[in-house]
Simulated scan of single mutants.
Amino acid sequence: MKFHLILLFSIIGILIWSLVNPKDMFTWFLEVTPAILGISVLIVIYSKFQFTNLVYSLIWLEAVILIIGGHYTYAEMPVFNWIQDAFDLSRNYYDRLGHFAQGFIPALIIREVLIRKNVTKTGIWLFYIVVSMCLAISAAYELIEFMVAMFTGTAAEAFLGTQGDVWDTQWDMLFALCGTIVSLTFLGRYHNKKLDQLRARGQHKF
């Protein structure tokens, strides 16, 4: 509980910081809304379903990435602007980090729900289902960006963050796919250990 409260109050603090002179308030709203909704859902279901601390930590990280992207916009995040200039890159790659995380982090969230709800056991089918769901989430997010741009016009340019790349949507989904595969490959066994610890303590039903 104490660890969870630390994560919650720290993310609230970061959220408040992000409200101070954001690059564009409309973009801020669009970018941080998923984080706010996700945190709200976690609070509502907390008494009935608590994730492992590993997953909560990753959710915190995803929220931080979204909130920072909302404050600066993904195309103008200062650290990645410096990286762009230092290595003479063609674009600010913070959005690529964001989409990699969009696969890397939901992969373990979905994996934990599927295992604990006995939807499927660990193995190739679990891997396949998680990858498919994460790629579907990424594609759905791209469709949301498309619809927002269609209805708001130039106001959503910073939200789209294409930076002049006609293949930006495809790159975004590819990075989410890579993030998912990397997450399952390198954190799968560690996640299993955390699930076993949770099961051994008997604190939450599986």
Rank of each mutant, 00 (worst) to 15 (best):
M1F: 13
M1I: 12
L5W: 15
I6W: 15
I6Q: 10
L7C: 09
L8T: 13
F9V: 11
I11E: 12
I11H: 14
I12R: 08
G13Y: 11
L15M: 13
L15I: 08
N21K: 13
D24C: 07
M25I: 14
W28T: 00
W28F: 10
F29L: 11
E31D: 07
V32L: 05
T33A: 12
P34T: 01
P34V: 05
I36S: 04
L37M: 12
G38W: 07
L42M: 11
L42C: 10
V44E: 08
I45V: 15
S47W: 15
S47D: 14
K48E: 11
Q50G: 06
F51Q: 03
N53V: 04
L54Y: 09
S57V: 05
L58F: 15
W60T: 11
L61M: 14
L61T: 08
L61D: 03
E62G: 13
E62M: 13
L66D: 06
I68K: 11
I68Q: 13
G69H: 08
G70F: 08
Y72A: 02
Y74G: 02
Y74C: 03
M77P: 04
V79W: 15
V79K: 10
F80K: 05
F80C: 06
F80M: 14
D85H: 12
A86T: 12
A86C: 06
A86Y: 13
F87E: 07
D88P: 03
L89V: 04
S90Q: 12
S90N: 12
Y94M: 06
D95N: 10
D95G: 08
R96C: 01
G98S: 05
H99P: 01
F100V: 03
F104H: 04
P106R: 02
P106W: 01
A107Q: 07
I110F: 11
E112D: 03
V113Q: 05
V113F: 14
I115S: 04
R116L: 04
N118C: 05
V119M: 10
G123K: 04
L126D: 11
L126V: 01
L126F: 04
L126E: 11
F127M: 03
F127A: 01
Y128Q: 09
Y128P: 00
I129D: 02
V130D: 01
V131I: 14
M133D: 02
C134M: 02
S138G: 15
A140F: 14
E142R: 01
L143R: 05
L143Y: 05
F146N: 07
F146R: 09
M147Q: 14
V148E: 01
V148S: 02
A149I: 02
M150H: 15
F151H: 13
A155K: 15
E157M: 10
E157S: 12
A158G: 13
A158N: 10
L160A: 06
L160T: 03
G161H: 02
T162S: 12
Q163W: 04
Q163S: 02
Q163P: 00
G164M: 05
D165S: 04
D168I: 00
D168E: 09
W171F: 12
W171V: 01
M173C: 06
L174Q: 08
F175A: 00
A176I: 03
V182N: 07
S183E: 08
T185W: 10
T185V: 06
L187T: 03
L187S: 03
L187M: 13
L187R: 06
G188S: 09
Y190S: 09
L198K: 10
R201C: 06
R201A: 12
G202S: 06
H204M: 13
